[in-house]
Nucleic acid binder design. Structure first.
Length: 274
DNA sequence: ATGGCTATCATAGATAGA
């Protein structure tokens, strides 16, 4: 089973790219982040045409997460238990569409089911911004949920994939000195600790050992020729439970998708399971 | 020349991204 995670930065703007990617990479499952639409504007027909079932969680023009699968899609869950809400200036805090889960894979097809989460972790916006404590609390509660799942079944086949908006290691950004000097988000110790909490539970990224850095990224800013100069960030990760990690046959970043006109600023990350 | 982007919708500038 081939699973990809991809922050598409608007699904409607990227519809042709997404359809071509599914075909070109012969993908079974795609976890999507930043669909940037409500259900009523979601391009359902794209997935139907391509032969995929799809679930979407979109509340406004912001955020939005989806899971498309051609190997079964069941037990869809929008958000996670206790997911923190956010409202700018403390006003009218609401749930944001940043987490969607489903079981993919069918035993009948010889594909063992996987509990998959498509995640768009809050950005944080600034080290002193109110979005930052929201980001950290969001991750803390999600990690609690992941811990409970694993405690209930240590052999659970679970994948938390998506845009984590955290660069866990210094080599995961093109210029760590600048990031630290100028107080950028994504590299601060509290953010890294929040990511590490998942690793400490036993979740692992299958890509890094196969494609070690430096200079290996999943995101490149649209500005300042960042992609041609390969000044990027590694912030999109598939984190796999121990039992699932054992079945990985390959894992890689589809850098080709960042090229050309009409690309997302993120590249898809692919995991192949045996 | 040291900056150069892309997307959303109340379609003009605000907001968000990272």
């Amino acid at each position: 089973m081939k699973i990809a995670t991809w922050n598409v930065n608007s699904l409607r703007a990227r519809a042709d790219r997404v359809e071509a990617f599914l075909e070109r990479r012969d993908m079974d499952v795609l976890a999507i982040q930043e669909t940037k639409c409500k259900d009523e504007n979601f391009p359902w027909e794209l997935f139907e045409r391509a032969g995929y079932e799809v679930a979407h969680h979109g509340i406004s023009q912001w955020n939005g997460v989806a899971i498309a699968s051609r190997v079964g899609l069941s037990d869809v869950q929008r958000g996670f238990p206790g997911q923190p809400h956010f409202g700018k200036g403390g006003k009218d805090p609401q749930e944001e569409a940043r987490a969607l889960s489903a079981v993919v894979g069918e035993e009948a097809d010889g594909v063992e089911p996987v509990r998959l989460w498509s995640l768009y972790v809050p950005n944080g916006r600034g080290l002193q911004d109110e979005h930052m404590p929201y980001k950290l609390e969001w991750l803390r509660v999600l990690a609690e949920h992941a811990a409970a799942e694993l405690a209930a079944d240590p052999r659970a086949r679970t994948a938390y994939v998506g845009d984590w908006n955290i660069a866990p290691r210094d080599e995961d950004v093109w210029d760590i000195e600048m990031f630290l000097r100028d107080g950028y988000t994504h590299v601060s110790e509290p953010e890294r600790a929040a990511f590490r909490a998942f690793e400490e539970l036993g979740f692992t990224d299958p890509v890094r050992p196969r494609h070690p850095g430096p200079d290996v990224y999943t995101y490149w800013d649209y500005t300042q020729l960042r992609f041609p100069k390969n000044k990027g960030m590694r912030i999109d990760f598939p984190l796999l439970s121990p039992a699932l990690a054992e079945t990985v046959t390959d894992a890689w970043i589809d850098r080709e998708e960042r090229k050309g006109k009409g690309a997302s600023d993120h590249a898809p990350v692919v995991v192949e399971l045996g």
